[in-house]
């Protein structure tokens, strides 16, 4: 084979490979990449959120001001079942599972903790105007077997793993490795209002054993009981 012919053949092959890598998800594609299913956080392999976070001077002041006067125990949002939303949700170190359901136009991330649902709209654009929500608005696309998720329109919240303003932007790259046994999510968070550099954390998940069930996560029963007692009622046995 001449050198020219070799180069042309190699170029054509490279083009074909790149084309195949950008094909949209199909039913068999979703099965092939083995991302559908229940995943358990692997705290041992996952990176921790950097400590301290790379605050700018202004960012540190803003968060410190917010924390001033708040009692870490009495004013702990966890006592009131407050879900921190994104990006903390993507970084959660708690041991609750996540189920991924891939459809033709969405990827659903069903998180047991706080019964959260994340919808990733495939091959879509963020709306020009949207209601800021705790988990924001997510769009995604496939780059080969990697799901790239872009999330904006996140409500500003200063509690949770990563305090953030309305300028926060999260990009996640999820891929399955180890022949379907491991899910890796590389999470990149930027918020120029608070941080001097992106926060990058790699989270690992392990495929859940056969028979694993996703459970409901009703969190506010204790608050309801306290209310019942304050009203003089015998708390209903939930």
């Amino acid at each position: 084979m001449s050198a020219l012919r070799y180069q042309v053949t190699r170029g054509i092959l490279a083009t074909v490979v790149m084309f195949l890598a950008t094909l949209p998800a199909t039913g068999s594609f979703a099965q092939d990449i083995k991302m559908n299913g229940i995943w358990l956080p692997d705290g041992g392999r996952s990176q921790r959120t950097p400590s301290p976070l790379p605050y700018s001077t202004a960012g540190r002041e803003a968060v410190t001001d917010w924390q001033a006067g708040r009692d870490p125990q009495e004013d702990d949002p966890g006592r009131f079942c407050q879900a921190p939303g994104m990006p903390s949700l993507a970084l959660s170190g708690a041991g609750y599972p996540m189920e991924i359901v891939i459809t033709d136009d969405q990827v659903l991330m069903l998180l047991e903790i706080h019964q959260q649902i994340r919808r990733v709209f495939l091959d879509s654009e963020h709306p020009a105007r949207t209601l800021p929500q705790r988990n924001g608005h997510s769009v995604g696309h496939w780059e080969g077997n990697t799901l790239v998720v872009d999330t904006t329109a996140i409500r500003p919240i200063f509690f949770g793993a990563v305090p953030h303003t309305d300028q926060v932007h999260v990009v996640e790259r999820l891929r399955v490795t180890d022949n379907g046994d491991t899910l890796v999510n590389e999470v990149t968070i930027t918020d120029p209002a608070l941080y001097t550099q992106p926060i990058v954390v790699e989270r690992y998940f392990t495929a859940a054993p056969e028979g694993t069930l996703m459970l409901e996560y009703e969190c506010s029963e204790s608050m309801w009981i306290e209310h019942e007692e304050s009203r003089g009622f015998e708390p209903f046995s939930l």
Partner: peptide
Amino acid sequence: FFRLIAGAIFTFSCHVAVAHHSPVA
């Protein structure tokens, strides 16, 4: 699963004040 849930609900019949402390506690 359902047997365990039933057991858990049984224990609820004796109520205690429920707390959720921050880890700093």
